[in-house]
Design a protein around this nucleic acid. Sequence first.
DNA 1: TTAAATCGGTAGCCATGGTTACCAAAAACA
DNA 2: TGTTTTTGGTAACCATGGCTACCGATTTAA
Lengths: 230, 230
Amino acid sequence: MYMKWMKALSKCELFRRISPDELNIVFECLKPNVNSYGKNEWVAVAGERFTGLGVVLSGEVVVAKENAAGSRVIIAVNGPGEMFGEMAAFSGDGVWPVTVAARTACTVMFLPAGKIVGNCENSCMSHRQLITNMLEIVSGKALMLHQKVEYLAIKSLREKISTFLLEQYKRTGSTMFMMPLKRNELADFLNVSRPSLSREMSRLRDEGVIEFHRDSMKIKKVDALRSMSS
Amino acid sequence: MYMKWMKALSKCELFRRISPDELNIVFECLKPNVNSYGKNEWVAVAGERFTGLGVVLSGEVVVAKENAAGSRVIIAVNGPGEMFGEMAAFSGDGVWPVTVAARTACTVMFLPAGKIVGNCENSCMSHRQLITNMLEIVSGKALMLHQKVEYLAIKSLREKISTFLLEQYKRTGSTMFMMPLKRNELADFLNVSRPSLSREMSRLRDEGVIEFHRDSMKIKKVDALRSMSS
DNA sequence: TTAAATCGGTAGCCATGGTTACCAAAAACA
DNA sequence: TGTTTTTGGTAACCATGGCTACCGATTTAA
Protein backbone atom coordinates (compact mmCIF):
# COMPACT_ATOMS: atom_id res chain seq x y z
CA MET A 1 0.00 0.00 0.00
CA TYR A 2 2.82 2.41 0.77
CA MET A 3 5.07 1.04 -1.96
CA LYS A 4 4.15 3.72 -4.50
CA TRP A 5 5.43 6.35 -2.07
CA MET A 6 8.54 4.48 -1.06
CA LYS A 7 10.82 6.79 -3.03
CA ALA A 8 9.66 9.85 -1.11
CA LEU A 9 9.54 7.93 2.16
CA SER A 10 13.07 6.66 1.78
CA LYS A 11 14.23 10.26 1.42
CA CYS A 12 12.45 11.25 4.59
CA GLU A 13 14.79 11.89 7.49
CA LEU A 14 12.24 10.47 9.89
CA PHE A 15 12.73 7.00 8.44
CA ARG A 16 16.49 7.08 8.12
CA ARG A 17 18.22 3.88 9.17
CA ILE A 18 14.91 2.02 8.90
CA SER A 19 14.70 -0.53 6.08
CA PRO A 20 11.65 -0.65 3.75
CA ASP A 21 10.59 -3.95 5.36
CA GLU A 22 10.77 -2.46 8.82
CA LEU A 23 8.98 0.60 7.51
CA ASN A 24 5.93 -1.45 6.57
CA ILE A 25 5.82 -2.87 10.08
CA VAL A 26 6.17 0.63 11.52
CA PHE A 27 3.25 1.82 9.40
CA GLU A 28 1.19 -1.04 10.77
CA CYS A 29 1.72 0.59 14.16
CA LEU A 30 1.32 4.19 13.13
CA LYS A 31 -1.66 3.86 10.83
CA PRO A 32 -1.02 7.09 8.89
CA ASN A 33 -3.62 8.98 6.80
CA VAL A 34 -2.81 9.99 3.24
CA ASN A 35 -4.57 12.99 1.64
CA SER A 36 -4.27 14.83 -1.67
CA TYR A 37 -4.61 18.57 -2.28
CA GLY A 38 -4.97 20.82 -5.29
CA LYS A 39 -2.72 23.83 -5.95
CA ASN A 40 -3.19 26.68 -3.43
CA GLU A 41 -5.49 24.53 -1.31
CA TRP A 42 -5.03 24.66 2.48
CA VAL A 43 -3.30 21.63 3.92
CA ALA A 44 -3.44 22.89 7.49
CA VAL A 45 -4.68 26.15 8.90
CA ALA A 46 -3.15 27.85 11.95
CA GLY A 47 -5.43 27.56 14.96
CA GLU A 48 -7.31 24.49 13.76
CA ARG A 49 -7.00 21.12 15.46
CA PHE A 50 -3.67 19.42 14.95
CA THR A 51 -4.02 16.48 12.60
CA GLY A 52 -0.58 14.92 12.95
CA LEU A 53 2.95 15.11 11.76
CA GLY A 54 2.94 15.78 8.01
CA VAL A 55 5.20 14.14 5.44
CA VAL A 56 5.05 15.37 1.85
CA LEU A 57 4.79 12.42 -0.54
CA SER A 58 4.51 14.37 -3.79
CA GLY A 59 4.37 18.02 -4.84
CA GLU A 60 5.31 21.00 -2.68
CA VAL A 61 3.82 22.80 0.28
CA VAL A 62 4.51 26.27 1.70
CA VAL A 63 4.72 26.53 5.47
CA ALA A 64 3.99 30.04 6.71
CA LYS A 65 3.25 31.86 9.91
CA GLU A 66 0.76 34.68 9.90
CA ASN A 67 0.41 37.15 12.72
CA ALA A 68 -2.87 38.79 13.61
CA ALA A 69 -2.09 41.83 11.47
CA GLY A 70 -2.11 39.52 8.47
CA SER A 71 1.53 39.89 7.45
CA ARG A 72 2.91 36.53 6.38
CA VAL A 73 6.33 35.08 7.07
CA ILE A 74 7.41 32.09 5.02
CA ILE A 75 9.01 29.45 7.20
CA ALA A 76 9.81 26.86 4.57
CA VAL A 77 8.96 25.29 1.24
CA ASN A 78 8.78 21.50 1.53
CA GLY A 79 9.01 18.90 -1.23
CA PRO A 80 8.72 15.08 -1.30
CA GLY A 81 10.15 13.40 1.79
CA GLU A 82 10.10 16.63 3.80
CA MET A 83 8.05 17.15 6.92
CA PHE A 84 6.05 19.80 8.73
CA GLY A 85 4.32 20.06 12.08
CA GLU A 86 7.15 18.18 13.77
CA MET A 87 7.42 20.72 16.56
CA ALA A 88 3.74 20.97 17.36
CA ALA A 89 3.48 17.20 17.41
CA PHE A 90 5.30 16.76 20.69
CA SER A 91 4.93 20.00 22.48
CA GLY A 92 2.03 21.95 21.06
CA ASP A 93 -1.34 22.81 22.51
CA GLY A 94 -3.15 20.60 20.04
CA VAL A 95 -3.57 23.18 17.29
CA TRP A 96 -1.57 23.97 14.19
CA PRO A 97 0.86 26.83 14.94
CA VAL A 98 1.47 27.41 11.24
CA THR A 99 -0.52 27.49 8.05
CA VAL A 100 0.41 25.01 5.34
CA ALA A 101 -0.71 25.50 1.75
CA ALA A 102 -0.20 23.45 -1.39
CA ARG A 103 2.30 25.29 -3.57
CA THR A 104 1.58 22.71 -6.25
CA ALA A 105 -0.84 19.80 -6.31
CA CYS A 106 0.45 17.44 -3.66
CA THR A 107 -0.05 14.37 -1.51
CA VAL A 108 0.62 14.40 2.20
CA MET A 109 0.86 11.65 4.84
CA PHE A 110 -0.17 12.47 8.41
CA LEU A 111 1.29 10.48 11.29
CA PRO A 112 -0.63 10.52 14.58
CA ALA A 113 1.72 12.18 17.05
CA GLY A 114 0.77 10.09 20.05
CA LYS A 115 1.71 6.88 18.32
CA ILE A 116 5.28 7.89 17.58
CA VAL A 117 6.27 8.27 21.21
CA GLY A 118 4.95 5.60 23.57
CA ASN A 119 5.33 1.89 23.47
CA CYS A 120 4.39 0.06 20.35
CA GLU A 121 1.74 -2.63 20.82
CA ASN A 122 3.49 -4.91 18.36
CA SER A 123 6.75 -4.03 20.10
CA CYS A 124 8.31 -3.24 16.74
CA MET A 125 12.01 -2.64 17.05
CA SER A 126 12.21 0.50 14.97
CA HIS A 127 10.38 2.68 17.38
CA ARG A 128 13.50 3.68 19.22
CA GLN A 129 15.17 4.53 15.94
CA LEU A 130 12.13 6.56 14.98
CA ILE A 131 12.28 8.54 18.21
CA THR A 132 16.01 9.12 17.84
CA ASN A 133 15.50 10.32 14.27
CA MET A 134 12.74 12.57 15.47
CA LEU A 135 15.08 14.07 18.03
CA GLU A 136 17.66 14.85 15.41
CA ILE A 137 15.06 16.37 13.11
CA VAL A 138 13.45 18.58 15.71
CA SER A 139 16.86 19.80 16.86
CA GLY A 140 17.63 20.66 13.28
CA LYS A 141 14.40 22.57 12.93
CA ALA A 142 15.16 24.49 16.08
CA LEU A 143 18.54 25.46 14.70
CA MET A 144 16.90 26.57 11.46
CA LEU A 145 14.55 28.79 13.41
CA HIS A 146 17.62 30.17 15.06
CA GLN A 147 18.86 31.08 11.59
CA LYS A 148 15.55 32.73 10.92
CA VAL A 149 15.80 34.72 14.13
CA GLU A 150 19.20 35.90 12.99
CA TYR A 151 17.76 37.12 9.70
CA LEU A 152 14.91 38.93 11.35
CA ALA A 153 17.21 40.50 13.91
CA ILE A 154 19.13 42.23 11.14
CA LYS A 155 17.96 45.81 11.13
CA SER A 156 18.97 47.27 7.79
CA LEU A 157 17.40 46.05 4.58
CA ARG A 158 20.72 46.35 2.78
CA GLU A 159 22.30 43.99 5.27
CA LYS A 160 19.44 41.52 4.92
CA ILE A 161 19.78 41.47 1.15
CA SER A 162 23.54 41.13 1.33
CA THR A 163 23.29 38.24 3.77
CA PHE A 164 20.72 36.51 1.61
CA LEU A 165 22.69 36.91 -1.60
CA LEU A 166 25.90 35.71 0.02
CA GLU A 167 24.08 32.66 1.32
CA GLN A 168 22.90 31.85 -2.21
CA TYR A 169 26.43 32.41 -3.47
CA LYS A 170 27.75 29.99 -0.88
CA ARG A 171 25.01 27.49 -1.64
CA THR A 172 25.44 27.49 -5.41
CA GLY A 173 29.16 28.19 -5.47
CA SER A 174 28.67 30.69 -8.27
CA THR A 175 28.27 34.46 -8.50
CA MET A 176 25.50 33.84 -11.03
CA PHE A 177 22.39 32.04 -9.89
CA MET A 178 18.63 31.96 -10.07
CA MET A 179 16.80 33.56 -7.18
CA PRO A 180 14.89 30.80 -5.40
CA LEU A 181 12.12 33.18 -4.33
CA LYS A 182 9.98 35.67 -6.20
CA ARG A 183 10.26 39.30 -5.11
CA ASN A 184 7.07 39.01 -3.15
CA GLU A 185 8.25 35.92 -1.34
CA LEU A 186 11.69 37.33 -0.69
CA ALA A 187 10.13 40.46 0.75
CA ASP A 188 8.00 38.25 2.99
CA PHE A 189 11.02 36.22 4.01
CA LEU A 190 13.09 39.27 4.90
CA ASN A 191 10.06 40.86 6.51
CA VAL A 192 10.10 44.06 4.46
CA SER A 193 7.73 45.54 1.89
CA ARG A 194 8.15 44.61 -1.73
CA PRO A 195 8.70 48.14 -3.07
CA SER A 196 11.35 48.74 -0.43
CA LEU A 197 13.09 45.55 -1.47
CA SER A 198 13.01 46.53 -5.13
CA ARG A 199 14.26 49.99 -4.32
CA GLU A 200 17.23 48.74 -2.34
CA MET A 201 18.10 46.10 -4.93
CA SER A 202 18.05 48.79 -7.60
CA ARG A 203 20.40 50.90 -5.50
CA LEU A 204 22.80 47.98 -5.21
CA ARG A 205 22.55 47.59 -8.97
CA ASP A 206 23.20 51.30 -9.56
CA GLU A 207 26.28 51.04 -7.35
CA GLY A 208 27.54 48.21 -9.54
CA VAL A 209 27.45 45.64 -6.74
CA ILE A 210 24.96 43.32 -8.39
CA GLU A 211 23.24 42.84 -11.72
CA PHE A 212 19.88 41.21 -12.20
CA HIS A 213 16.91 40.66 -14.41
CA ARG A 214 13.89 39.03 -12.86
CA ASP A 215 15.04 35.66 -11.49
CA SER A 216 18.61 35.79 -12.70
CA MET A 217 21.12 37.34 -10.35
CA LYS A 218 24.79 38.13 -10.75
CA ILE A 219 27.04 39.32 -7.96
CA LYS A 220 29.67 41.67 -9.37
CA LYS A 221 31.41 42.73 -6.17
CA VAL A 222 31.42 39.94 -3.62
CA ASP A 223 33.62 41.87 -1.22
CA ALA A 224 31.32 44.87 -1.26
CA LEU A 225 28.45 42.58 -0.29
CA ARG A 226 30.58 41.02 2.43
CA SER A 227 31.37 44.34 4.01
CA MET A 228 27.66 45.18 4.03
CA SER A 229 26.65 41.83 5.45
CA SER A 230 28.92 41.77 8.48
CA MET B 1 27.97 12.77 44.64
CA TYR B 2 25.03 14.35 42.84
CA MET B 3 22.86 14.43 45.96
CA LYS B 4 23.63 18.06 46.78
CA TRP B 5 22.22 19.07 43.39
CA MET B 6 19.19 16.81 43.54
CA LYS B 7 16.80 19.70 44.14
CA ALA B 8 17.80 21.43 40.91
CA LEU B 9 18.02 18.13 39.05
CA SER B 10 14.55 17.05 40.11
CA LYS B 11 13.20 20.29 38.65
CA CYS B 12 14.93 19.61 35.35
CA GLU B 13 12.56 18.61 32.60
CA LEU B 14 15.18 16.30 31.17
CA PHE B 15 14.87 13.99 34.18
CA ARG B 16 11.12 14.07 34.49
CA ARG B 17 9.55 10.71 35.24
CA ILE B 18 12.95 9.39 36.34
CA SER B 19 13.29 8.61 40.06
CA PRO B 20 16.35 9.81 42.04
CA ASP B 21 17.59 6.22 42.29
CA GLU B 22 17.34 5.76 38.56
CA LEU B 23 18.97 9.13 38.11
CA ASN B 24 22.12 7.98 39.85
CA ILE B 25 22.31 4.99 37.53
CA VAL B 26 21.79 7.27 34.54
CA PHE B 27 24.63 9.49 35.69
CA GLU B 28 26.86 6.41 35.90
CA CYS B 29 26.23 6.10 32.17
CA LEU B 30 26.44 9.75 31.22
CA LYS B 31 29.43 10.77 33.31
CA PRO B 32 28.63 14.50 33.37
CA ASN B 33 31.11 17.30 34.15
CA VAL B 34 30.26 19.93 36.72
CA ASN B 35 31.85 23.41 36.55
CA SER B 36 31.47 26.64 38.49
CA TYR B 37 31.59 30.19 37.15
CA GLY B 38 31.83 33.70 38.62
CA LYS B 39 29.42 36.51 37.74
CA ASN B 40 29.74 37.71 34.12
CA GLU B 41 32.16 34.92 33.30
CA TRP B 42 31.66 33.12 29.96
CA VAL B 43 30.12 29.68 30.30
CA ALA B 44 30.17 28.98 26.57
CA VAL B 45 31.24 31.17 23.66
CA ALA B 46 29.60 31.01 20.23
CA GLY B 47 31.90 29.37 17.71
CA GLU B 48 33.95 27.40 20.23
CA ARG B 49 33.83 23.63 20.47
CA PHE B 50 30.60 22.26 21.85
CA THR B 51 31.10 20.89 25.34
CA GLY B 52 27.74 19.21 25.91
CA LEU B 53 24.20 19.80 26.95
CA GLY B 54 24.17 22.28 29.85
CA VAL B 55 22.02 22.04 32.97
CA VAL B 56 22.11 24.91 35.46
CA LEU B 57 22.54 23.57 39.01
CA SER B 58 22.73 26.92 40.83
CA GLY B 59 22.68 30.60 39.89
CA GLU B 60 21.57 32.03 36.56
CA VAL B 61 22.94 32.17 33.04
CA VAL B 62 22.06 34.42 30.10
CA VAL B 63 21.80 32.75 26.71
CA ALA B 64 22.33 35.21 23.87
CA LYS B 65 22.94 35.23 20.16
CA GLU B 66 25.22 37.84 18.68
CA ASN B 67 25.42 38.60 15.00
CA ALA B 68 28.56 39.82 13.31
CA ALA B 69 27.55 43.44 13.70
CA GLY B 70 27.72 42.92 17.45
CA SER B 71 24.09 43.52 18.24
CA ARG B 72 22.94 41.07 20.86
CA VAL B 73 19.61 39.28 21.09
CA ILE B 74 18.76 37.64 24.39
CA ILE B 75 17.33 34.18 23.88
CA ALA B 76 16.72 33.24 27.49
CA VAL B 77 17.67 33.60 31.12
CA ASN B 78 18.06 30.19 32.77
CA GLY B 79 17.98 29.32 36.45
CA PRO B 80 18.47 26.07 38.42
CA GLY B 81 17.12 23.02 36.64
CA GLU B 82 16.99 24.78 33.28
CA MET B 83 19.01 23.77 30.25
CA PHE B 84 20.86 25.24 27.31
CA GLY B 85 22.57 23.85 24.23
CA GLU B 86 19.85 21.27 23.81
CA MET B 87 19.45 22.04 20.13
CA ALA B 88 23.11 22.04 19.22
CA ALA B 89 23.60 18.76 21.09
CA PHE B 90 21.83 16.66 18.51
CA SER B 91 22.03 18.56 15.32
CA GLY B 92 24.79 21.09 15.49
CA ASP B 93 28.10 21.28 13.70
CA GLY B 94 30.04 20.71 16.89
CA VAL B 95 30.30 24.34 17.96
CA TRP B 96 28.24 26.47 20.29
CA PRO B 97 25.67 28.44 18.27
CA VAL B 98 25.01 30.78 21.18
CA THR B 99 27.00 32.54 23.85
CA VAL B 100 26.21 31.71 27.46
CA ALA B 101 27.31 33.99 30.30
CA ALA B 102 26.94 33.77 34.06
CA ARG B 103 24.33 36.32 35.08
CA THR B 104 25.19 35.48 38.68
CA ALA B 105 27.78 33.11 40.11
CA CYS B 106 26.63 29.69 39.04
CA THR B 107 27.27 25.97 38.72
CA VAL B 108 26.59 24.09 35.51
CA MET B 109 26.49 20.40 34.62
CA PHE B 110 27.49 19.37 31.10
CA LEU B 111 26.13 16.12 29.65
CA PRO B 112 28.05 14.58 26.74
CA ALA B 113 25.62 14.66 23.84
CA GLY B 114 26.67 11.39 22.27
CA LYS B 115 25.93 9.45 25.40
CA ILE B 116 22.31 10.54 25.64
CA VAL B 117 21.32 9.00 22.34
CA GLY B 118 22.77 5.56 21.58
CA ASN B 119 22.56 2.39 23.55
CA CYS B 120 23.58 2.42 27.16
CA GLU B 121 26.35 -0.04 28.04
CA ASN B 122 24.71 -0.87 31.34
CA SER B 123 21.42 -1.10 29.47
CA CYS B 124 19.84 1.22 32.02
CA MET B 125 16.12 1.39 31.55
CA SER B 126 15.74 5.13 31.81
CA HIS B 127 17.47 5.89 28.57
CA ARG B 128 14.32 5.69 26.55
CA GLN B 129 12.57 8.01 28.99
CA LEU B 130 15.51 10.36 28.72
CA ILE B 131 15.26 10.45 24.94
CA THR B 132 11.51 10.95 25.05
CA ASN B 133 11.93 13.80 27.52
CA MET B 134 14.57 15.27 25.29
CA LEU B 135 12.17 15.15 22.35
CA GLU B 136 9.53 17.00 24.29
CA ILE B 137 12.02 19.62 25.45
CA VAL B 138 13.53 20.29 22.07
CA SER B 139 10.08 20.56 20.51
CA GLY B 140 9.21 23.06 23.20
CA LYS B 141 12.33 25.08 22.47
CA ALA B 142 11.52 25.10 18.81
CA LEU B 143 8.06 26.42 19.55
CA MET B 144 9.58 29.12 21.76
CA LEU B 145 11.82 30.19 18.91
CA HIS B 146 8.69 30.33 16.84
CA GLN B 147 7.35 32.78 19.41
CA LYS B 148 10.54 34.75 19.08
CA VAL B 149 10.19 34.82 15.32
CA GLU B 150 6.70 36.15 15.76
CA TYR B 151 7.96 38.95 17.98
CA LEU B 152 10.70 39.90 15.60
CA ALA B 153 8.34 39.81 12.65
CA ILE B 154 6.21 42.52 14.23
CA LYS B 155 7.09 45.72 12.47
CA SER B 156 5.88 48.54 14.68
CA LEU B 157 7.45 49.18 18.05
CA ARG B 158 4.08 50.05 19.53
CA GLU B 159 2.76 46.66 18.53
CA LYS B 160 5.79 44.92 20.01
CA ILE B 161 5.37 46.70 23.33
CA SER B 162 1.64 46.00 23.40
CA THR B 163 2.18 42.33 22.69
CA PHE B 164 4.84 42.10 25.36
CA LEU B 165 2.77 43.84 28.00
CA LEU B 166 -0.30 41.76 27.24
CA GLU B 167 1.78 38.62 27.58
CA GLN B 168 2.95 39.74 31.02
CA TYR B 169 -0.63 40.56 31.91
CA LYS B 170 -1.71 37.07 30.87
CA ARG B 171 1.22 35.50 32.71
CA THR B 172 0.70 37.32 36.01
CA GLY B 173 -3.05 37.63 35.79
CA SER B 174 -2.84 41.23 36.97
CA THR B 175 -2.77 44.63 35.32
CA MET B 176 -0.02 45.58 37.77
CA PHE B 177 3.26 43.71 37.61
CA MET B 178 7.01 44.03 37.73
CA MET B 179 8.77 44.17 34.40
CA PRO B 180 10.94 41.05 34.15
CA LEU B 181 13.54 42.81 32.00
CA LYS B 182 15.44 46.07 32.39
CA ARG B 183 14.88 48.66 29.66
CA ASN B 184 18.14 47.71 28.03
CA GLU B 185 17.27 44.04 28.00
CA LEU B 186 13.74 44.67 26.79
CA ALA B 187 15.08 46.81 23.97
CA ASP B 188 17.43 43.95 23.06
CA PHE B 189 14.59 41.45 23.24
CA LEU B 190 12.32 43.49 21.00
CA ASN B 191 15.25 44.31 18.77
CA VAL B 192 14.91 48.09 18.98
CA SER B 193 17.08 50.84 20.45
CA ARG B 194 16.66 51.80 24.08
CA PRO B 195 15.77 55.46 23.50
CA SER B 196 13.14 54.48 20.95
CA LEU B 197 11.65 52.07 23.46
CA SER B 198 11.58 54.72 26.17
CA ARG B 199 10.07 57.22 23.79
CA GLU B 200 7.25 54.93 22.73
CA MET B 201 6.55 53.84 26.31
CA SER B 202 6.31 57.48 27.29
CA ARG B 203 3.84 58.08 24.48
CA LEU B 204 1.69 55.21 25.72
CA ARG B 205 1.88 56.73 29.18
CA ASP B 206 0.93 60.20 27.87
CA GLU B 207 -2.06 58.64 26.15
CA GLY B 208 -3.16 57.15 29.45
CA VAL B 209 -2.80 53.57 28.29
CA ILE B 210 -0.18 52.56 30.82
CA GLU B 211 1.51 53.92 33.92
CA PHE B 212 4.96 52.99 35.08
CA HIS B 213 7.93 53.83 37.20
CA ARG B 214 11.12 51.91 36.60
CA ASP B 215 10.24 48.23 37.10
CA SER B 216 6.65 48.66 38.14
CA MET B 217 4.08 48.65 35.40
CA LYS B 218 0.35 49.22 35.41
CA ILE B 219 -1.91 48.70 32.44
CA LYS B 220 -4.75 51.21 32.58
CA LYS B 221 -6.49 50.42 29.29
CA VAL B 222 -6.21 46.75 28.45
CA ASP B 223 -8.49 47.07 25.44
CA ALA B 224 -6.45 49.88 23.98
CA LEU B 225 -3.39 47.66 24.19
CA ARG B 226 -5.31 44.79 22.62
CA SER B 227 -6.32 46.86 19.63
CA MET B 228 -2.70 47.86 19.13
CA SER B 229 -1.41 44.34 19.51
CA SER B 230 -3.58 42.63 16.90
C1' DT C 1 -4.97 34.27 -29.48
C1' DT C 2 -6.91 37.37 -26.63
C1' DA C 3 -8.08 38.63 -21.93
C1' DA C 4 -6.93 38.57 -17.19
C1' DA C 5 -3.88 38.02 -13.52
C1' DT C 6 0.57 38.17 -11.72
C1' DC C 7 5.00 40.07 -11.29
C1' DG C 8 8.42 43.58 -10.83
C1' DG C 9 10.37 48.46 -11.12
C1' DT C 10 9.74 53.27 -9.96
C1' DA C 11 8.42 57.66 -7.67
C1' DG C 12 6.81 60.82 -3.98
C1' DC C 13 5.40 61.46 0.53
C1' DC C 14 5.87 60.87 5.24
C1' DA C 15 5.77 58.03 9.67
C1' DT C 16 8.72 55.35 12.34
C1' DG C 17 12.48 54.65 14.75
C1' DG C 18 17.88 55.06 14.96
C1' DT C 19 21.50 58.09 16.74
C1' DT C 20 23.72 61.09 19.76
C1' DA C 21 23.95 63.56 23.61
C1' DC C 22 22.69 65.03 28.11
C1' DC C 23 20.83 64.75 32.72
C1' DA C 24 18.74 62.93 36.96
C1' DA C 25 17.79 59.07 39.87
C1' DA C 26 19.09 54.83 41.78
C1' DA C 27 22.19 51.24 42.84
C1' DA C 28 26.60 49.29 43.64
C1' DC C 29 30.86 49.88 45.57
C1' DA C 30 34.77 51.64 48.34
C1' DT D 1 29.70 57.88 53.79
C1' DG D 2 30.93 59.66 49.43
C1' DT D 3 32.01 58.13 44.78
C1' DT D 4 31.39 55.58 40.67
C1' DT D 5 28.44 52.92 37.71
C1' DT D 6 24.23 51.67 36.06
C1' DT D 7 19.79 52.77 34.69
C1' DG D 8 16.22 55.32 32.48
C1' DG D 9 13.90 59.53 30.45
C1' DT D 10 14.17 63.19 27.06
C1' DA D 11 15.13 66.01 22.90
C1' DA D 12 16.67 67.21 18.11
C1' DC D 13 17.95 65.62 13.87
C1' DC D 14 17.75 62.70 10.13
C1' DA D 15 18.04 58.05 7.54
C1' DT D 16 15.43 54.16 6.56
C1' DG D 17 11.85 52.04 4.85
C1' DG D 18 6.47 51.71 4.59
C1' DC D 19 2.66 52.99 1.69
C1' DT D 20 0.15 54.15 -2.41
C1' DA D 21 -0.19 54.46 -6.97
C1' DC D 22 1.08 53.58 -11.59
C1' DC D 23 2.93 51.24 -15.57
C1' DG D 24 5.02 47.89 -18.50
C1' DA D 25 6.38 43.04 -19.01
C1' DT D 26 5.38 38.33 -18.46
C1' DT D 27 2.77 34.47 -17.42
C1' DT D 28 -1.59 32.04 -17.02
C1' DA D 29 -6.16 31.14 -18.24
C1' DA D 30 -10.05 31.21 -21.34
